[in-house]
């Protein structure tokens, strides 16, 4: 049985932005518009980005990606439910977050191919759209303005995650410190 620490880790792994639930009828451009990374793009630019999206259907029990694999794509969850998991040093499987419609995961893969730090396990049939770093890089070569806007927003998103991590560390320190100070 996987241990749930999703509540504790929510600032880091969960949706730190406003709720982005998608309806089934939404087009790929509408979906992109709601993702913070692409919020600065105009409709024409969103149309260009929508051409490099890949829609995939995952069944419950499948992994979208696994810890240690080289990251190549960011996934936006259109519908369904996905658990972000990681095996602890003691071998216990920890659930770091539960994400669903409107959430996105693996945005660091848009920067480099470093190994995935957690796995994405599908717990309910899921439809996701993938966006690949290599496609995005090629797009930036011919549309540098678009690239500039996306990268600036991506930096903001990563900055927010970093702030959330700091908060989490401070909270943990307070909690751990208080426990130690207790007689």
């Amino acid at each position: 049985m996987a241990k749930q620490i999703a509540n504790k880790m929510a600032p880091l792994w969960g949706n730190i932005f406003s709720a982005l639930n998608f309806s089934k009828q939404e087009s790929e451009v509408d979906i992109l518009k709601k993702i913070p990374i692409f919020q600065d793009l105009r409709k024409r630019e969103l149309n260009i980005v929508s051409k490099i999206l890949y829609e995939r259907k995952y069944e419950a029990g499948e992994y979208m990606f696994e810890t240690g694999q080289p990251g190549a794509a960011m996934f936006i969850i259109k519908e369904g439910s996905v658990q972000i998991t990681r095996t602890s040093k003691s071998g216990e499987e920890l659930v770091l977050a539960n994400i669903g419609s409107g959430d996105f995961v693996g945005e660091l893969a848009l920067l480099d191919s470093s190994a995935r730090s957690a796995s994405a396990y599908v717990i309910k049939n899921t439809v996701a759209v993938a966006i690949f770093r290599s496609d995005l890089e090629k797009l930036f070569e011919s549309n540098p303005d678009l690239g500039n806007k996306v990268m600036r927003r991506l930096a903001t998103v990563i900055g927010l995650r970093l702030k959330a991590t700091n908060e989490l560390l401070i909270n943990l320190e307070d909690e751990y410190g208080n426990q130690q100070n207790e007689p």
Binding site: Y54, R56, E62, Y63, P70, A72
Partner: peptide, 21 residues
């Protein structure tokens, strides 16, 4: 990217990310 999309549609999820890379 239509050719790539068509080819990737044939690839199972497990090999999807790997195939595009």
């Amino acid at each position: 990217g239509e050719i790539k999309h068509t080819l990737l549609n044939l690839i199972p999820n497990r090999y999807f990310e790997m195939s595009l890379t």
